[in-house]
Amino acid sequence: MKITLGAVSRPLESLKIKTGDWGTEYPVIIEENCKGCGDCVVYCPDLCIELVEVGKDEKGKVRKVAKVNYDYCKGCGTCSVVCKHEAIKMEIKELYRG
């Protein structure tokens, strides 16, 4: 095996750890409610929510909504709690449904 001098690690190798299978729940973005405020993005402890463009609103302004990267989401539910627009609901993963 290859080891580095003094156990130096390369940056961001954590990205290969898919933590998305940790939780029992997952967030679902209700796009029509999402105002693209970005609160869920700044609070997400797993850095797995970003705002993505989904066309334009009535006034022709670019419309952005939250999108979850389920590869890393641990289902903590923080996003759903901090969302002021009822745009994120938590659902139980199929595996854990009674």
């Binding site: 095996m1 080891i3 001098l5 156990a7 130096v8 690690s9 390369r10 940056p11």
Partner: peptide, 28 residues
């Protein structure tokens, strides 16, 4: 230095090792 802390090449120094690699580092 063969490797150093720099924002140009942001390496992680002082990683901890699990039993899967600790022994190799001490052998080194």
């Amino acid at each position: 230095p063969p490797v150093k802390m720099t924002t140009k090449d942001p390496y992680t120094f002082g990683s901890y090792a699990t039993p899967a690699s600790y022994m190799e580092f001490r052998a080194a």
